[in-house]
Computed example of a mutant assay.
Amino acid sequence: MITNLIRRGIQALFVIFAMTLIVFVGVNVIGNPVDILINPDLNQAERLRVMQNLGLDQPLWRQYLSFLAGLAEGDFGDSFVYGRPALGVILERLPATLELALAAMVIAIVVGLPLGLYAGLYPDRLSSKLIMTGSILGFSLPTFWVGLMFILLFAVQLGWLPSNGRGETAGAWSFLTGDGLRHLILPALNLALFKTSLILRLTRAGVQEVIAQDFVKFARAKGLLERRVVLVHILKNLMIPVVTIIGLEFGSLIAFSVVTESIFGWPGMGKLIIDSINLLDRPVIVAYLMMMVVLFVTLNFVIDICYTLLDPRVRLDGKG
């Protein structure tokens, strides 16, 4: 097991290194931030001075080496727009995005897992068919449209919940205050809709696959309580694909919450990266993309560890 995890760790480092090259080159061949950040009335000498201050006068390969050196120290350079370290600008917005993603994932797990388990155990019931029909709607409805309908219904028509912002915060978190929690409900529900449907359908498919296995039939033939059969024999064996989806989808919630944050005016990283792309703020874009790379690599590594804990066959393969 230890050898397998060390091998995965080395692979993860190679992936991160390869992505540094892809991200840096991809971002730096897009446009010229000088054309956006500098007054066009400035003369050539003043433009050259600004480019030198931003480090844009160096060859691309030298900029990449400087980027790698800074990356080793956690330094992505200063933001062209904010004039502060790019990583610090992103970390200021991280708690908002992280809070929204965690809330959405908790909703998706709490709602999707039990409903999927129920629909898989009792597929012929009318309630199960209604649950699966609802999951299709969760897949089909566009996130931006659902968000606008949430605002129209719950904020404009009923006036129950606020339509934008984070509200009052306690430290870096809004869910610790009543006003902040009210601001969190609508964007979290909107972001969780697709993930809930995904976990629900995956859980249902896993239940129907596991329930036909011989060890489940044997457990029931022994006279075990149905609750023990479901929790110990069925749920544990279907959790491997579910854990994979939960891990990867949590990363996607953080990386791709742009639409929800824009609709609800949520001051997170998604809104920041859109503004940075419009202004060609390269250090912020690169820092954000590298954070997402590290996030997904780390999540995959954690999922590998969860595999070894959930499935003894993985541990045996590692020993082999």
Rank of each mutant, 00 (worst) to 15 (best):
G88S: 15
R84V: 11
V110H: 07
V89L: 13
S127N: 07
Y82Q: 14
E92P: 11
L115G: 01
V89K: 10
A104Y: 07
Y82I: 15
K129V: 10
A119S: 14
Y118C: 07
E92A: 09
L94Q: 05
R84N: 12
L126F: 14
A86P: 01
P114G: 05
L98V: 01
L91K: 03
L100A: 00
L113R: 15
I109G: 03
L113K: 14
A86Y: 00
A96L: 00
R84H: 13
S128N: 02
V106Q: 06
T97M: 00
L121N: 09
P95Y: 04
G116F: 06
E99K: 01
G120N: 14
R93Y: 07
P123M: 08
V106E: 05
K129M: 11
Y82P: 12
M105P: 04
L102Y: 06
R84D: 14
L94N: 02
F80P: 09
L117M: 15
L91T: 03
A101K: 02
A103H: 02
A103W: 02
M105D: 00
G116C: 14
A101Y: 03
Y82V: 12
A119G: 07
L102G: 08
I107K: 00
K129I: 11
L115Q: 00
I90Q: 06
I109H: 01
E99G: 03
S128A: 06
P95R: 05
R125P: 13
L91V: 05
L102M: 11
L98I: 08
F80E: 09
L91R: 05
L91F: 12
L102C: 13
L94F: 11
E92N: 13
G120L: 10
A101Q: 02
G83R: 14
